[in-house]
Design a protein around this nucleic acid. Structure first.
Lengths: 340, 340
DNA sequence: TTGTACGCGTTATCAA
DNA sequence: TTGATAACGCGTACAA
């Protein structure tokens, strides 16, 4: 079986008996195209099954309608919702999204971004910016960039995220209100700005409540299940174990709960646990994790909106959007003061 | 601050004192470019920070190096691993991936695919093909297509998936071996070919074990948590409730477990539950779901490999790859025969 | 409403 | 063997 060559705008023009230029005008709904011409053109388009070649258009217009989305790993349950928000808003505006996993490898990230720029993308959304070095070189690129979630270089790039300090404070305050005094913290990645903010919030909340805790109430879990698991095991072996643990994300909170289960420590009776993110799994019947909701889908959408302002040249100054978070109280921290 | 215009191949040629054509040859590592010329060219490339414009290249070569990936919703935990496999293999081969969420809406799917084809993608990977109508019109498109996971039209398109019948049989046989006789089934989407296969496997396993069950041991859960939850509630109200339930995916299994928890029915003591997919969450300490592992990452990779054979024109006939599944025994179905 | 130049890299042709 | 010239891919933009 043979396939006919794809029809081009010339084929349409020939069939409609007009010039290619007019076909272009008609298809792009420009004015000054007569009704009859339009009819003939659309008839030809339909008959030939013509589809405009966006590559050619992109070359001429110097604009591809493609946005690059860079994240460390789509398999990490934190990202799909952001990706969803980005893709949905982008499509609404006639843009497509190229997805790139960096594996948190700066070299790979650099190389992926090079490819994206070669592909003449109209904008770049980066969710995995760890250090300033990851994004520093991008300042020189003449390509709109929006950072999501992490902003290692505040004021340099457009940004969508949350207020990590106050969000963490909200979570810890909840534990304090429940009567907890021995509140541990499982930190994410020490180097990450988000992680740092949550640590700050934890400390501030304790300070304001005049609760003074030894430094060894803080563990690092690297944002991963196993990390939370190990951190919790270690906390349970503390000479004066905590009655509550605030985890810098839900994955580590799940790990912490797993560790409790392993050691026959009851949650929330023996130890209360609060997470951060509100992944879907947190609401599961047999998880019911109290956590801080991050509006990830919304973050993705807003990121695209910010990007559009840049693409359309509407804005020159850097803009930061801080979205509200929300404490979602479920069952992993019980209801009231437990005996000390 | 002003940005200089992006350098083009002409700028490089001028700086290196050669023709643009020679620059192209050098950058593409074609023969017949002298060493000195190469040196001058690469020096100029570096100095100017030149990056080839892939859009222009794509136009000329009639090949964009982009693969379209169509799925119903990246937020559905089933897909990210497939997407990961696709993206990783694609990048390895110099391809990029455009991601599209269809929301299981045939109209949106059609429109997204139209856009992708307009973008001159080199291939299309579709994971959300429900009915034959979803893909039927694609036969005419001269674009390599690989179906993943669902194949409503066996033999028409390249396909990567699993053997649903034998995989389901394996799961049900496990329950039978444990001594269960009253085994219910929570089906996914009746119309989906995968769902149908799992139902077939369930029936075959029972038949071979000479277990005859009333038809009302089968419920539909639409592959969703709530569906599994409701289905389980209804099964628990059965006059002769099942001692085991096989769920056509993990989400429904989680829902079923949730329902049991709600009704103080113990898993696995009172009822054994087996899922399908092996999402990461199934291995969580306080889930420990027995399930059938689908090699989703591998499916994504293989899909790209099949696609490459088509793109390179190596193969004309349709190829189907069936990947092996594996029963992962955890804790939701106990160890031995429970009293009947 | 149309002719034509243009965007930019690739490739066929031709000259040295 | 090495390199330059010019045509080409296809839709858009501007002058006519």
């Amino acid at each position: 079986m043979k396939f006919k060559k794809k029809p081009s705008i010339k084929d349409v023009a020939k069939m409609a008996g007009v010039s290619p230029a007019l076909v272009s005008l008609a298809l792009n709904e420009k004015p000054y195209v007569s009704k009859e011409a339009k009819e003939k053109i659309f008839a030809a388009v339909k008959k030939l099954g013509y589809r405009p070649n966006i590559v050619a258009r992109s070359l001429r217009k110097k604009s591809t309608g493609i946005i690059g989305l860079v994240l460390s790993d789509i398999t990490n349950p934190f990202y799909p919702e952001i990706a969803r928000g980005v893709e949905e808003k982008a499509r609404e505006l006639g843009f497509s999204v190229i997805l790139c996993n960096t594996d948190a490898d700066p070299f790979r990230e650099k190389s992926l971004i090079d490819i994206l720029l070669s592909r003449q993308i109209d904008g770049l959304i980066i969710t995995s910016a760890r250090s300033d070095q990851d994004v520093y070189h991008l300042v020189r690129e003449n390509c709109p960039i929006v950072l999501v979630n992490r902003d290692p270089f505040p004021g340099r790039f457009d940004f969508v995220g949350i207020d990590n300090i106050s969000s963490a404070k909200m979570a810890v305050n909840h534990l304090i209100k429940l009567g907890h005094k021995k509140i541990a913290f499982i930190e994410g990645e020490p180097a990450s700005p988000a992680s740092f903010g949550r640590y700050e919030g934890y400390k501030e909340a304790l300070k304001e409540a005049k609760i003074f805790l030894p430094e060894d109430y803080v563990r690092i879990g690297y944002l991963r299940y196993e990390g939370g698991y190990k951190a919790m095991l270690s906390l349970l072996e503390h000479p004066s174990p905590p009655t509550a643990v605030f985890c810098a994300n839900d994955m580590m909170a799940l790990g912490a709960i797993g560790a409790c289960l392993k050691k026959d420590v009851r949650v929330p009776e023996d130890v209360a646990i609060v997470g951060f993110d509100d992944m879907w799994i947190a609401s599961l019947e047999n998880i019911q994790l109290t956590t801080v909701r991050q509006p990830r889908y919304e973050m993705g959408k807003k990121a695209v909106e910010l990007m559009m302002e840049r693409i359309k040249g509407k804005r020159k100054e850097v803009k930061r959007i801080i979205l509200p978070t929300k404490l979602v109280v479920r069952k992993t921290c019980g209801k009231f003061l437990k005996g000390d």
